[in-house]
Nucleic acid binder design. Structure first.
Length: 113
DNA sequence: CCAATGACGACTT
DNA sequence: GAAGTCGCCATTG
């Protein structure tokens, strides 16, 4: 899996990492950005903003900010869709934030095994 | 071309 | 320890 790091297509790498997130787990923008060496967590979030039209669909609901808050829930088709999806996967949401975020936190290196 | 914004993060006060 | 400020890089106005 050679990482091209083509800044014009880096969001493809972001999608790949987000798709690798196991069900019931969550990760952060900064982690993805750091893993892909994007240099800014904003780039990861920006890429996910367009993930809605990406195929296959990207489980962006599994990506939250450093605080574990569902910062992008308003960007979904429905503001509550993100929380519903997370709860459906066993992730408890409290005050728009992931419960036991440290426990649900997932790192791309885990996928490397 | 310049300025402002953004699904963020880390540092400083 | 909490709140505020600056920095990152790309897109849009």
């Amino acid at each position: 899996m050679s990482k091209k790091l083509n800044k014009t297509h880096y969001f493809d790498d972001v999608y790949d990492v987000v798709r690798a997130v196991p069900r019931g787990r969550v990760t952060t923008y900064g982690t993805i950005a750091n893993f892909l060496c994007l240099g800014s967590a904003r780039m990861a979030g920006w890429a996910l903003n367009k993930c809605q039209g990406a195929l296959p669909p990207v489980p962006a609901h599994r990506v939250v900010n450093r605080k574990g808050e569902l910062s992008g829930r308003l960007m979904f088709e429905h503001p509550t869709k993100m929380q519903e999806l997370l709860e459906a996967e066993g992730v408890q949401i409290e005050n728009n934030a992931v419960v036991d975020f440290d426990q649900k936190y997932w790192h791309p290196e885990e996928s490397l095994s």
